[in-house]
Amino acid sequence: MYVQINGNRLHIEVLGDRPGVPTIIAHHGAPGLGSLAEPRASFGRLSDAYRVVVFDARGSGASDDNGPFTHAQWVADVDAVREWIGAEQIVVAGGSYGGFIAMEYAIAHSDRVSAMVLRDTSPDNSNEAAARANALASARVTVDLEKFERIMTGTTRDDADLRDCWTEILPLYDHDYDPSLTARRAEATPYHYRTHNYAFSVNQHTYDVKPKLPTVTAPTLITVGRHDWITPVACSETIAELIPSSTLVVFENSGHSPQVEEADLWEATVREFLEEVHATR
């Protein structure tokens, strides 16, 4: 369905829409590249016990491309989606760049968050240097540095160039590399280069929520793949050190996507965490 949210038409799906169950709002990663398909595949598995809301953020997927593409706007959109669905409190979730938005939401709207679930994310932009070093050190592929720099600095030329640059780095993401899977992902990705460019040429320069993470009051589960190249384990360790009521779980046989590469274990981990949270409320 399409819903007008803050002057922008968002593509939204609601899974397990039953009265009386907690609501999860899950934010996808990769602005300009991501879509609701990612959180639908992972959090959608919890729709037997939760109402799960997933959506294409403004400037991504099938949603409209009206800006601004700022963290503040994306956080405001999450809260407007919460209000639209009629939930007083939510479990806010996000993976990768979506984790940035989830953390900023939990900071700005602590009274609206019953719990937070993070996956392979970072509390600041320091992961960029580690990602570059990991990409250059990879024995899997030889990265074209010009394409790498364009996608990581948000200077892609158009949607076709964003696709070309995205295809270049996709082999780095998985623990077990499957070229055919990489090709299918590149084909299935919706490309919005202006959104991506703004996120990585503007937002990333000032992104740092570390000073405010100690104010997060919600119980938080932090999950990360041991072999994540772009938001390494150290990033999640920093988040866990700063959020008072947090639990860190490292998935030993995963890269950037334990929700895919160790799907059953990841799902069980999230279920157990949320059951404990809501059993005490």
Rank of each mutant, 00 (worst) to 15 (best):
M1G: 13
Q4K: 15
Q4P: 06
N6Q: 10
L10Q: 03
H11A: 12
I12N: 05
E13S: 13
E13I: 00
V14N: 11
P19V: 00
T23F: 03
H27S: 14
G29I: 01
A30G: 15
A30R: 09
P31Y: 01
G32E: 00
L33V: 09
L33P: 06
E38Q: 10
P39A: 04
R40T: 13
S42I: 14
G44A: 06
G44Y: 06
S47R: 10
S47G: 04
Y50E: 05
Y50T: 05
Y50A: 08
V52P: 15
D56P: 03
D56R: 08
A57P: 00
R58I: 10
N66G: 13
A72H: 15
W74Q: 07
V75M: 05
V75C: 02
A76S: 12
D79V: 02
V81R: 04
E83V: 00
E88D: 14
I90V: 15
F100Q: 06
I101T: 11
I101W: 06
M103E: 13
Y105P: 09
I107E: 08
A108D: 13
D111V: 03
D111R: 13
D111F: 06
V117L: 03
T121A: 01
N125W: 05
E128H: 10
R132C: 07
R140A: 12
V141A: 07
V143I: 14
D144V: 02
L145N: 12
M152L: 11
T153P: 15
D161Y: 05
L162A: 02
L162M: 03
D164G: 08
E168I: 02
L172E: 11
Y173P: 00
D176V: 14
S180H: 09
A183W: 09
A186Y: 04
E187G: 08
A188P: 04
Y193T: 07
H196M: 11
S201R: 08
V202H: 11
N203Y: 04
N203K: 07
H205S: 13
H205G: 06
H205F: 10
K210D: 00
K212E: 12
T217C: 03
A218V: 07
P219Y: 13
P219E: 12
T223P: 00
H227W: 14
V233R: 11
C235A: 13
E237T: 13
E241W: 01
L242S: 09
P244K: 09
T247Y: 05
L248D: 11
V249L: 10
F251Q: 06
F251A: 02
S254R: 03
G255P: 09
H256G: 04
P258A: 00
A268I: 03
T269P: 00
E272Y: 11
F273A: 09
F273N: 06
L274R: 04
L274T: 05
E276R: 15
V277F: 11
